[in-house]
Amino acid sequence: MNFDLSPAWISIKVTLSATVIVFFLGLITAWLMTKYNGRWKGLIDGILTLPLVLPPTVAGFGILLLIGNNGPVGKFLEIFGVNIIFSWYAAVIAAIVVAFPLMYKTTMGAFEQIDPNILSAARTLGASEAKVFWRVAVPVARPGIAAATALTFARCLGEFGATLMVAGSIPGKTETIPIAIYFATQGGEMQVALIWVLIIFAISLTVLVINNYWESRKKNQQRGFGG
């Protein structure tokens, strides 16, 4: 059996990059949306959440329209001789688009749970908005943010449809684990597929379990059961 490990490295590279970007993007968008109470809130929230309810292939199609060789972003990048379609960057973009709503929605839920008096207290004590965010809102909402990050990571790791459309399946370049599973199964290499299934299973479970342990330890510390 000829087993190529490259999908694992590609998957990890894509997933980590996308998770880091989605983490900050989602966190800040969620905070701004929590504070915004204007009349466009419903519409903006709908647009930001859309990729969660649409099929990933629709997201893939949209990304292709934008960054494809004839898309506005694609044409712009061509000036600099950069072509991101069918590169691992495209896989990162696909993962970002698909995972963003998970991070954004879950985090916003956590921010909305914060007692507004706590945030007001920080402001009356002279805190700037940046300080309110980093020193109060984020730490208080941390369990929700951690859950959102774990979900984001898992979603990025498992991304298939949009990735296939914009990054293709170039072995050693853009072939991630989920895509490797698909093509191995298609090609009748059930053993290869099974190994990848077990690997992705192990990674996802590890991340979720570590997240849970870490959170419960933190929680106990603030409640005074050791730690």
Partner: peptide
């Protein structure tokens, strides 16, 4: 520069 004591005290739990 106003000190506000909230009904539920609003201490930072973290």
């Amino acid at each position: 520069k106003v000190g506000f004591l909230f009904q539920n005290y609003a201490l930072f739990p973290n």
